[in-house]
Design a protein around this nucleic acid. Structure first.
Length: 566
RNA sequence: CGGGGCGUAGCGCAGACUGGUAGCGCACUGCGUUCGGGACGCAGGGGUCGGAGGUUCAAAUCCUCUCGCCCCGACCA
């Protein structure tokens, strides 16, 4: 491709709208342009990267035995009503009506549509297992789209759905996808980790997320040094702490804490450690309000709470509920004297003696409260987020914390959707059985953005070769006839040899070309200048290291052809 | 949805407080010179100042409403 004929609108300056590295660089390198919040056009270079990732995904999915199909973006409400997700999915599901006033939505995921296909077309155990996948545009009306392709509303996703005869089969299908994902992200040149995860809106019995490690990641993951345990912090399990030796119980005492309602303020005022304070948080779970006790230096995990209570979702209680339950303004809730409400406490609270708690009275806290003397805990449970230093549930050392970007997610669905939609097959005995499902997603655009997060320097992007928009960027450095002629010749020879070459044939000065080349991040630059050419040499420069080799055109041809063949 | 910020030429911004008919850099067009890390000269083109309404002799500027975009938050009582 010739730069002079292509739309590659690089920007000299950082666009004002972008903060994150990948967002900024993808705009500056002329890969994408925004159409609306979270909605982007892929320009020629950006699309080439997307297509490269898709090709790797496709190869590995096919290799794993999955069959490619393509489902529609619009789907009718009826299917979603069958599984209850028409109501359950909430505002993220973009709904609309057709001209006949029939309800439709833009598919955020395709369990309903694929399960409908399965129940209509697949009859026999002999046809199982099957795995259908597609690479398609999804729409999720995100609360807050951000960071360019990282969290878009419209985005390209590979989604796959497996159907098996039984749990054991489903586990095999799941493992195949897990292995395929490992190969895919490895081939894309990413540093990643598969972690245990929560199943969220998709549901199901268990899941793993594939996390690209990056400081800008929106997800927090915990893992152990030895690598035997890794989980999303939403999911990471914490075991009960060993019981601490008893301490003498001090008398309960109410103290004024004027202007101090947060943990920070109260601990500063009373000159105590946050570990000595126990927060009392009120949560709404459906109609019920519950009190949740966690140590001052810990955070409640609302997903764990919801799971314990057997509800879909828990939210912080509204201030008026807090006031009516505790009789005090927000900031002074405590467990002592709370009536008609379940009091759930995190395991760690059990070991806090003579704790500080809110007094259910404005600007007042209690000192020296003890759970076995002053109030009743309905249940101790794992209710908080793991943090660095917590013990691993596998007993293999302290947990460490890193940030990650979720690029892939695999789920064991069980029979959640087959049951709801009556997707059955006939087994060997002629009996109807529910298909056991799994589903598996990869964010294609997010994978591209993650690659930028992990591979860049101050000058721009450094694409891993397998997903790079081109293998080689050909840079004639002067407009002399000799240079122009040699560039044209090499362009043709390389292209014929199967090397993907971007030829910067613009009438620009060398500096401009160098800067754009570094920004776009094609892995290798082929420099043609008068001085070297006079000796029959050209330069081969690696973007990542800046290393330059002076080679003959023949050597370049051999080298580049070898790379392209990889 | 809550908080903060921003919409002025393709991009980055100034002008607004103190109202007087729009400017800078880059990019773009033409000609010439230049040519290995973002060249230079000369001559040009391009903006209903996000939109609507209002105040005023006069509005990018003041007031009201509205649309869009970005950032933080939406768990810590």
């Amino acid at each position: 491709m010739r730069v002079s004929r292509a739309l590659i609108p690089t920007l000299r300056e950082d666009p004002g709208e972008a903060e994150t590295v990948s967002h900024r660089l993808m705009l500056r390198a002329g890969l994408i342009r925004k159409v609306a919040a979270g909605i982007y056009t892929y320009l020629p270079l950006g699309l080439r990267i997307i297509r490269n990732i898709e090709a790797i995904v496709r190869e590995e999915m096919n290799r794993a035995g999955a069959q490619e199909i393509l489902m529609p973006i619009a789907s009718p409400a009826e299917l979603w009503k069958e599984t209850g997700r028409w109501d359950f999915y909430g505002k993220e599901l973009l709904r609309f009506k057709d001209r006949h006033e029939r309800d439709f939505c833009l598919g955020p995921t395709h369990e309903e549509v694929v399960t409908d296909l399965f129940r209509r077309e697949v009859r026999s155990y002999r046809q199982l297992p099957v795995n259908f996948y597609q690479i398609q545009t999804k729409f999720r009306d995100e609360i807050r789209p951000r960071f360019g392709l990282m969290r878009g509303r419209e985005f390209i996703m590979k989604d796959a759905y497996s159907f098996d005869r039984d749990e054991a089969g489903a586990r095999l299908s799941y493992q195949k996808m897990y292995d395929a994902y490992t190969r895919i992200f490895t081939r894309c040149g990413l540093t990643f980790r598969a972690v245990e995860a929560d199943t969220g809106l998709i549901g199901g019995t268990s899941s793993h997320e594939f996390m690209v490690l990056a400081d800008t990641g929106e997800e927090t993951i915990v893992y152990t040094e030895g690598g035997t345990y890794a989980a999303n912090v939403e999911r990471a399990e914490l075991l009960p702490e060993p019981e601490a030796p008893p301490e003498p119980q001090q008398p309960l005492q109410a103290v004024p804490t004027p202007q101090a309602s947060t943990v920070e303020q109260v601990t500063a005022l009373l000159k105590i450690s946050p570990r000595q304070l126990v927060k009392t948080l009120l949560y709404s779970a459906g109609q019920e309000t519950v009190a949740v006790l966690v140590r001052g230096d810990h955070e409640v995990n609302p997903i764990k709470l919801a799971r314990l209570l057997g509800v879909v979702e828990t939210t912080m209680a509204a201030p008026d509920i807090v006031t009516s339950v505790t009789g005090a303004p927000v900031g002074f809730a405590g467990p002592i004297g709370l009536r008609n409400i379940r009091i759930l406490a995190d395991y760690a609270v059990k070991n806090v003696r003579n704790m500080v708690v809110g007094a259910n009275k404005a600007e007042t806290h209690y000192l020296n409260a003890n759970w076995d003397r002053d109030f009743t805990v309905t249940e101790f449970a794992d209710l908080r987020n793991a943090q660095a230093g917590d013990p691993s549930p596998r007993g293999d050392g302290p947990l460490r914390v890193v940030k990650g970007i979720e690029v892939g997610h695999v789920f064991m669905l069980g029979t959640k959707y087959s049951q709801a939609m009556n997707a059955r097959y006939l087994d060997q005995q002629g009996q109807e059985q529910l298909a056991v499902m799994g589903c598996y997603g990869i964010g294609i655009g997010r994978t591209a953005a993650s690659a930028v997060e992990q591979n860049h320097d101050s000058k721009g992007i450094i694409w891993p070769l397998p997903i790079a928009p081109f293998h080689v960027l050909l840079l004639p450095l002067s407009p002399s006839e000799a240079v122009t002629k040699k560039a044209e010749e090499l362009y043709q020879q390389l292209t014929e040899a199967g090397v993907e070459v971007l030829w910067d044939d613009r009438d620009e000065r060398a500096g401009v070309k160098f800067n754009d080349a570094d920004l776009i991040g094609v892995p290798f630059q082929l420099l043609i200048g008068d001085k070297n050419l006079a000796q029959g040499l050209v330069e081969w420069k690696e973007r990542k290291t800046g290393q330059v080799q002076k080679l003959t055109p023949e050597q370049v041809l051999a080298l580049a052809s070898g790379l392209a063949a990889q």
